[in-house]
Computed example of a mutant assay.
Amino acid sequence: MDPADTIETVRETTATELDRLGSDKLLVAVTGATLEPAAVRAAAATRERGLARTLERWGVEASDTTVADVFTDAAADAVDRADRVDADAEDDDALVAHLETVADSPARVGAGLVAPALVADRFYLQVVNFFLNEPDRASADLFREIRTAAADLEHARVALESLSSEEREQAAAAAVDAIEAVYADYAETLEAMGLDPRPVC
């Protein structure tokens, strides 16, 4: 399994979860139904700050130089995105909380580089749509740029290149676990609000 196959495996395995995380209910869940610009920005800042903190620590702990450098670079990119969001972070969200449980380096590549990019693509799609509906074109444009940056899988590809085929399988499994953890939290949050996380057909 090469890096491209690894990423595609994760994407295909979690297609249902990612599709549902792209629902307009997502911001209801992550803001606690507080659909206001400040709350949406805080959710974005929380994700990026928490991701940056975790990846920075992993960069220090990684024994593989390439993987360590990728974690460090990805952390710096997350800090840049958080700075552009310009909001205070709150308590760690479900993704960052899950990352704190991941120990092995191959698993960290999947959970910390592959999964966040795939989830970010869905999350920031809804953030862009939110600001378009405000209407706040400047903020929508900003978050469109942040979405492109956050969903970029180049860091993941570089790190996966340094892993063996067996380690890529571990990375793929860990990425799937991370996405499923995010989805489980999303579904449980909506169900507690009396909402169905499944799409209405």
Rank of each mutant, 00 (worst) to 15 (best):
E48F: 13
L99E: 06
E169H: 12
S63E: 14
A173L: 12
A75P: 08
D93R: 01
R198I: 05
A89P: 10
A62I: 13
L35W: 02
D64L: 10
D83P: 11
A68W: 01
E180F: 05
E100V: 01
E191A: 14
R57M: 13
R198H: 15
V128Y: 07
A140K: 10
G112L: 02
Q126A: 06
D141Y: 05
D2L: 02
V127T: 05
G50C: 09
A38K: 04
T13W: 00
A107C: 07
V127C: 08
R84N: 08
V40E: 05
L26G: 07
D91S: 11
A44C: 03
R20V: 09
V10Q: 08
E154G: 10
S105A: 14
D69R: 15
S162M: 03
T16M: 02
A111Y: 01
A175N: 10
R168D: 03
A140E: 06
T13I: 07
V176Y: 06
G22K: 06
G110N: 02
V200Q: 14
D185Q: 10
E154S: 01
A159G: 04
A38C: 01
A4E: 12
G50H: 12
A33H: 09
A115S: 05
S162Q: 12
D69G: 15
V119G: 14
A149I: 11
F131C: 10
A94P: 12
I7K: 13
S23T: 06
L18M: 13
V158I: 14
P37S: 01
D86R: 04
V102I: 07
D141W: 04
V28Y: 11
A38H: 02
E36P: 07
P199G: 09
D185G: 09
A87I: 15
F71R: 10
L132E: 08
D77M: 06
T189F: 11
Q126G: 11
Y186V: 03
E180K: 04
T6C: 10
V114C: 05
V158T: 14
S139D: 12
A140D: 08
A75V: 05
T9I: 09
K25Q: 10
V10L: 00
N133Y: 00
Y124L: 07
A151Q: 00
T66C: 00
D141F: 14
D69Q: 14
D83M: 03
H155S: 13
P106G: 02
A174L: 07
A107F: 05
A187I: 07
L132R: 13
D69F: 14
A33E: 00
P37A: 00
Q126T: 13
A103W: 10
T34P: 12
L99K: 12
R144Y: 09
A107S: 09
R144K: 02
E188M: 11
D77C: 03
R122A: 06
I7Y: 11
D19H: 02
A38Q: 04
V67H: 01
V60W: 13
D64M: 06
D141M: 14
A151T: 03
A120N: 12
